[in-house]
Amino acid sequence: MDTLKEDLKKQIIEQLNLEEITPADIADDVLLFNDSGLGLDSIDALELIVLLEKYHGIQVTNPDEGKEAFKSIDTMAEYIRKRKS
C-alpha cells in the first residue's frame, strides 16, 4: 500500500470536512473534481493548496498549477514526490 496516497485521503477528508466518506471510498484514480467522482469545487481546490503547505510543506503560488496536480489521488501523490525530490 502506498502510504503517501493513504495519508492524502485522510488529509483530504479532514481538511475538506468530508462527511460520510472514508479513505476506502476514494479510489486512487477517481476524478476529485468530477461530479461522478468526489464532486469537489473551486474552493475545495484552494483548501487542497492549504493542505499541501500544512502537511507537506509545499507552497503553491499559482492556483492554476494546482488544477493539473489535483486531478486525482494519483496525480497529487506524483506532484508531491516531484516537488520534494
Partner: peptide, 10 residues
C-alpha cells in the same frame, strides 16, 4: 491552525 481557510472565509 496555521493557515487562513478559504472554505471558511467564503
Amino acid at each position: 491552525n496555521g493557515s487562513p481557510s478559504p472554505s471558511l472565509f467564503v
